[in-house]
Write a protein that binds this DNA or RNA. Structure first.
Lengths: 227, 227
DNA sequence: AAATCTTTATAAAATCTTTATACATTCTAT
DNA sequence: ATAGAATGTATAAAGATTTTATAAAGATTT
């Protein structure tokens, strides 16, 4: 379930960090910590966590500013956890892209439930468990791809790439986006990786790999799955 | 924006209903009310609201039961709004599919922000801005252009030019402006580029490329999309 | 040792730029 | 008012550049 979910905590209070670490790790999450805004930004970029818990009172920049900066590219849940209880802050944070807003002191069971909810809402509309496209089926939960009911053997990277494209069927995903999502934040220039893996996928899932009907090239932009 | 969003309020307290009605309608939402669980279920089914605000203390059945029943088929946001403040209730409600949980008394600005957030999170990945012009559609986010529902393959530059013109439908954009926006600041004299690309676009999207109806020439000035 | 991922090399394809040419429109001098 | 010049436009096509597909070698991981 949440075995691979990493939560980034951006907060400089030692006690809060301890508390969060205990309750999150004992519920199967991995945790990373950042104690100021700058560290938070780079950590989000390098680790690509499944969610961020963000304090607003940071030593270097205001948490709401950081929220806005993160939202320029970070599309996973951001849960604000802060002592600031003014309605203005709450409204501002939610309207700037926060998924939830909790005030300290907080109850750790509730926080956990809200983390679960945020992650669930973020993934459920994408992850219908089995995607079907003609004779191709992609089982996202069991990591199994079938073509004409026969299992196609894909490597981990091939599967990630295929499922990311398939989940966004009909949409052009840019080279940058694909590279950042699958290889990591700093790999956005390694376009060649994509070409190699797209070619491998086409060999495995296309009826006629030289005339692809599923994995479509958008020259100069990226790739698209299906129409 | 939220002009067509209808919110169903399932709550039997008159004062809460009045308060919610005022703040929601004055922010552009339509409201429907149900005062017990049974009415709530049928109302959700018949009106298919964009979100539900659910009180847990209902006269006929427990709100958490109703939540579970609703979630069997209702996939839009459900925001629980209740006096019940026990952590168990909060965790249970969130894990059973509530999108948010607010306790009474509540601040109406915050409630509105949470409603906005819930609706945004529910829809943001599903629909993207699509420009429609007769049989032509331009999906700006997914970078897909369709004519009579068939995908028109455009190059990156062609797409930029078309979407820039279409976003400014009816407005004349000068040669200089178009060249600077798409090719770069110093390209403002390369009017010939525009002619070449406009001609290519007309071949791809006009019914009759020699009598353009979408990409209109404004001689000596620039080009215009549509009327 | 086998499988997978990364990197390099190269040919092919697609796209963009530039040139050439024909057509259309506006302006000007008679 | 009209011939002719000047300006603006459409389009095809050649040339240059960028992007892509693919195989295969090297590195890394399992």
């Amino acid at each position: 379930m949440n075995e691979n979910d990493t939560i980034l905590i951006i907060d400089d209070e030692i006690q809060i960090r301890r508390l969060l670490e205990i309750s999150l790790t004992s519920n199967g999450y991995k945790t990373i910590f950042a104690s100021d805004g700058k560290e938070g930004l780079t950590s989000a970029a390098t680790h690509n966590p499944s969610a961020i818990i963000l304090d607003l009172g940071l030593p270097d920049i205001d948490g709401l500013e950081l929220l806005v900066k993160l939202r320029e590219w970070f599309n996973k849940p951001i849960i604000v956890l802060t002592v600031r209880n003014s309605e203005d802050d709450i409204i501002y944070a939610l309207d700037k892209g926060a998924n939830d807003y909790l005030t300290k002191p907080f109850r750790s069971g509730e926080l956990l439930a809200r983390v679960r909810t945020a992650i669930r809402l973020n993934t459920e509309k994408i992850d219908s468990p089995i995607l079907e496209f003609g004779s191709l089926s992609i089982d996202l939960i069991n990591h199994v791809v079938r073509k004409n009911n026969e299992i196609v053997k894909l490597t981990a990277t091939e599967f990630s790439l295929l499922s990311l494209l398939a989940k966004n069927q009909g949409r052009v995903l840019t080279h940058q986006f694909l590279l950042r999502e699958i290889w990591g934040y700093s790999y956005y220039e390694q376009t060649q990786y994509l070409r190699v893996f797209i070619a491998q996928l086409r060999k495995k899932i296309e009826e006629n790999p030289s005339k692809p009907e599923l994995l479509i090239t958008e020259s100069g932009i990226g790739y698209r799955f299906g129409n």
